[in-house]
Design a protein around this nucleic acid. Structure first.
Lengths: 334, 334
DNA sequence: TGTCAAAGATGAAACGTTTCAAGTAGGCTA
DNA sequence: TAGCCTACTTGAAACGTTTCATCTTTGACA
């Protein structure tokens, strides 16, 4: 295989200068129809493929965005990544994905890699807040958009309004007649906003009790464990509604309760999850949940990062998008 | 951006030549300790980050692998992608991911993009066989590894032995006393090997009946629909085991049957799925399934693509990895 | 006929690296 | 002292593009 047929070889074969070939590629309207056809023909014949690296090196600015996500295996992040990819494509950007796997070392590795690769900007769902590494990148001018971290004036960020979501859920449960809501989820700081939202609403309602069931993380297994705990309670002590901090917890809980002899869902206990992962509506009892539109999130994120890239003086924005409550069978009124 | 501090600026500030700076980066042992320290110090002070584009342009060969996957939202592919990323990292390669979303246009777009980006090789789970575009790339010398497409001598490929997997499942079901196995899944050509494996075994066993229930695709919804069909059958006509072509189908089916009054799983009907997605073991009745180790798959794939990249004369290999049967409660002996 | 503008085409200079043949000091041996 | 090794350094030439200040051609107009 005669390696490397470049713009140079094309130029030679088409008997024009390299500048013209470049124009064929980038500003076809500045080239006469005749040469344009001839050059395109030659390109085709030689199997020319423009070298994106050289192009970007010369131009100084590329068309690639780096995205770092906590864990691709988590359906929410998979969806989000997917949505970002699609949103990026719509505006001619390519999103490349890295999974930090909840490890700071990997998060850093991808930050370094993307910087070396001179990506145009980064979309990051940070492991544990804003690290010094990120501030350094930001200071050097790298456009950044953070997911789920709010309020730092030095960064653009885009968050889902968990507090509003939590409030929605609590309101819905109270309105459908529930009086004892258990909030299921932990570690505390990861789910705090949802909890606060629920608290806001419950505090304003006489006769409504809100309790908290902690979990180590947010998996089906933990949800199921919580189910066992609830099942073991005296019926009078049991909550009549559970607001789970995410769908996995809710699904685990649901499984445990469905198998319990004397508990029916939603009659005895209503369940509401959070995230609307694919499986939520496919559950034994379709799960009520809070949907955070990944499409919308992605679109805004791409918008922000490009804005920052185009105008370094741009003013950082902290977006907070309201979620949407999806009522399904698991919290149907009795 | 911090006005591009490159190797040149570093050289100047450290009072050495650019060649030396480059050596500090790439062959530190050829540089005296004193200069090495000094140069590293300057780099740190100036916040130098080497430009990977220029580097790759000059070196001609990069460290990036392109991966195209049918759909990141599918847990199996998400796992696979993740495993490839990890396996790549172990040998110093970065895997960038694109999702074809089951659209040929997107598949092509990523092929083009990766070629322009001069990736070192590609890992592809093809939409619908080997396209002319791929052959063209291959002919130009691009290293390729295909997933799930077998037997083309022009390509390396790596497949899971679905036929062996199907046989395993059928054998297991028969050994635990089942006599009427329904194979659930379609479209036909996508699941054929698993079906054939089951057939191989059943054909050799007197008194065992194997039937086929077709589906449009392999989702929970289709599985649940199939559940309704089975429930509607006369009990004597019902299969006593279902082998679902993937876990989503199996989960849908399971949900439908669990809710049916007169059918118990696994007592009346055993269910076995395929893929071992995360949710399989978390299902109401933990799902027996066939596991295809994505780690192993990924490791081999990376190995192959690098081998092909290092030695263009290399002989293509068609690997076929045997899967592993995981017996859980959904097919426990009665 | 002479002038001028518009439209096309040119080619050398970047972009930030790596590579490599060639150069410079010392120190060791004879 | 000359000669030679070893251990570092050097600087210019790529890599494949895009950019841009200049040329050349053509045709319209006075």
């Amino acid at each position: 295989m005669d390696r490397s047929v470049g713009i140079r070889e094309v130029a030679e074969a088409a008997r024009v200068s390299v500048g013209t070939v470049s124009n064929v590629l980038n500003k076809p309207d500045r080239v006469s129809q005749a040469t344009l056809d001839r050059v395109l023909g030659v390109m085709d014949g030689l199997g020319f493929v423009r070298n994106g690296l050289a192009r970007q090196l010369r131009m100084g600015t590329g068309t690639t965005l780096g995205m770092i996500v906590l864990n691709v295996a988590n359906p929410f992040f998979a969806d989000l990544a997917h949505a970002c990819e699609a949103a990026g494509e719509r505006v001619g950007q390519t999103v490349v994905l890295g999974s930090s796997d909840q490890l700071e070392a990997r998060e850093d590795r991808y930050l370094d890699l993307f910087e070396e690769q001179r990506v145009r900007g980064m979309l990051v769902a940070p492991l544990d807040g804003i690290t010094p590494r990120m501030r350094q990148l930001r200071a050097r001018g790298m456009p950044f958009v953070l997911f789920d971290i709010h309020g730092d004036p030095g960064f653009c960020s885009i968050t889902l309004d968990g507090r509003a979501g939590g409030a929605m859920v609590a309101r819905h449960l109270i309105e459908t007649g529930r009086r004892h809501i258990a909030f299921l989820g932990g570690p505390r700081h990861q789910v705090e906003d949802r909890w606060l939202g629920a608290q806001d609403v419950c505090a304003g309602n006489q006769g409504v009790r809100l309790s908290h069931v902690d979990t180590r993380d947010q998996t089906i297994a933990e949800g199921r464990a919580a189910g066992a705990v609830i099942e073991a309670m005296a019926p009078s002590e049991r909550p009549d509604a559970v607001f789970a901090a995410n769908d996995l917890l809710a699904l685990g809980l649901l499984q445990a309760l469905v198998l319990a002899e004397d508990i029916r869902v939603p009659e005895d206990i209503a369940i509401v999850g959070y995230d609307d992962i694919d499986y939520a509506q496919s559950a034994v009892v379709p799960l009520s949940t809070v949907r955070q539109s990944t499409e919308l999130l992605a679109e805004r994120a791409i918008e922000l990062v490009l804005a920052e890239s185009n105008d370094p003086e741009h003013e950082h924005q902290q977006l907070r998008l309201p979620p949407e409550l999806l009522v399904r069978e698991s919290s149907a009124p009795r």
